[in-house]
Design a protein around this nucleic acid. Structure first.
Length: 414
RNA sequence: CGGGGAAUCGUAUAACGGUAGUAUGCAUGCUUUGGGAGCAUGCGGCCUGGGUUCAACUCCCAGUUCCCCGACCA
């Protein structure tokens, strides 16, 4: 991608109506555009990063046997009335057509996925099964806040699994838990599995995946020596005591962002829809349902909150919109530099490297400042200086290290 | 939903009861090219509705929108 053709431009000033670091940096960098409180459009750079995140999730969900589908986000009110959600879920967006037919916007998809599963799961032979989707969700939050961390429209991966028994659900839950931890690790984050209440969603305990950041809105108590971690909404979660998990660590508290969660839904939804299957003996049985969410846009916001400095975003390699930012420094007689940069751009593109090529005819300072703000992990500078040495200047966005490599050497690092 | 703050060129901001300024961006030209360059010219603005007043962008009220704290949070 030539930066001279990139749809967006950077901004020097942070928007005055955003305090959250994730929103300020993403807007300054041209990643997102605010439509209204809690609703953002994703621009080319933002869409690329979000796609990277979605693909990591997609790969890990596929790896545990999840099958991707795409469900409707415009829901008939009847299904929500059938489960009690129409009156019981206060964040549900409801709307009416010209003919006064009522609809809901999907804020979660149990009401949709359960009847679909009901159609295709008729026998114990069809179980277990897990299906998921990645898409927009709508929640009528009383207060949207923190940029893309808590919106009224947001991206989410939601997976639903159906099982013959509680034991089988728990087996699969453990599998998904590991997949989740892998997703967050691949996205550069360290997530803690946290015990929490199920909210109005479930009577049972749920598990949340928490990333430590002041930008979060949950408080957790965790053990520094082991994986024990609980949400402070759980009774008895107190700081300072010895860890009940390992008996050694002293419990500490922290602010955290919930980037994923898992609920044990039991038989609630199948029962609401009269969904049963035949077991080996030919008897009607009700499946156990689990649901597993990852907020894709919130995850992106969390990554920005965790990985940034005073100059801009510092993307982990795995989710950066591009892998290489090629920057040409054009001198007065810039013909040679430009030609070399073009050649390298072509070479990198041919090799399948995702490269943003800053071919603009602007001052070096502006290019460097934009490059820092956009936050692509590796910057390659071509200038008269580097040409004179017959090398490329490679700068690491994260630690600022600069190395001089020949083109061949550089290509080998990719 | 309760409380607090805010609203002025695209963006960030200033001032003022009497013709709205700066920076940046944008456009054009010239100069310049390793950390957001310089000069010149140009384009571009007071959220909406009431009230007070000779006169309101400014003061008052209401609405709308945005931000923050809290509550809420499938």
């Amino acid at each position: 991608m030539r930066q001279s053709h990139l749809f967006t431009k950077t901004r020097k000033e942070a928007p005055s109506d955003e305090i959250a670091k994730n929103a300020q940096l993403l807007i300054r960098g041209g990643y997102i555009h605010k439509e209204m409180a809690g609703v953002y459009s994703f621009l080319p750079l933002g869409r690329r990063t979000l796609c990277k995140i979605e693909n990591i999730i997609r790969e890990e969900m596929d790896a545990v046997g999840g099958q991707e589908i795409q469900m409707a986000t415009l829901h008939p009110s009847e299904k929500w009335k059938q489960t009690g959600g129409w009156g019981g879920v206060d964040v549900l967006f409801k709307l009416q057509s010209r003919t006064e037919k009522e609809y809901a916007l999907g804020q979660s998809e149990e009401e949709i996925v359960t009847p679909i599963a009901q159609e295709y799961v008729n026998s114990y032979k069809d179980l277990p099964v897990a299906i998921y989707q990645i898409g927009q969700k709508y929640r009528d939050e009383l207060r949207a806040k923190s940029g893309i961390m808590r919106g009224r429209e947001f991206g989410m991966k939601d997976m639903y699994s159906f099982h013959e028994s509680q034991e089988d659900f728990e087996r699969f839950y453990a599998v998904v838990k590991n997949a989740y931890l892998k997703v967050f690790r691949r996205a550069g984050l360290d997530a803690k599995v946290t015990e929490a209440t199920g909210g109005s969603f479930s009577e049972k305990i749920s598990y949340e995946f928490m990333v430590l950041t002041e930008a979060g809105e949950d408080d957790i108590v965790y053990c520094p020596s082991c994986t024990h971690c609980v949400n402070t909404e759980i009774a008895g979660a107190e700081t300072g005591g010895l860890c009940p998990g390992c008996g050694k660590g002293k419990l500490a508290n922290a602010r955290a962002a919930e980037v994923g969660n898992v609920f044990d839904l039991g038989m609630k939804y199948p029962k609401a829809f009269g969904f049963t299957y035949k077991d080996k003996e030919g008897k009607e049985q009700t499946p156990i349902v689990g649901c597993y969410g990852i907020g894709t846009t919130r995850l992106m916001g969390t990554i920005v909150e965790v990985f940034s400095d005073d100059k801009g975003i510092v993307w982990p390699e795995s989710v950066a919109p591009f892998n290489v930012h090629l920057v040409s420094i054009l001198a007065a007689e810039g013909g040679k530099v430009k030609a070399a940069a073009e050649t390298l751009y072509e070479a990198l593109t041919r090799r399948g490297v995702e490269v943003l090529y800053d071919d603009r005819d602007v001052r070096p300072g502006e290019k460097f400042a934009d490059s820092d703000l956009i936050g692509i992990p590796t910057r390659v500078v071509i200038s008269e200086k580097t040409l004179a040495q017959g090398k490329l200047e490679i700068k690491n966005r994260k630690n600022g290290d600069v190395t001089m490599l020949s083109e061949t050497q550089f290509l080998e690092t990719l």
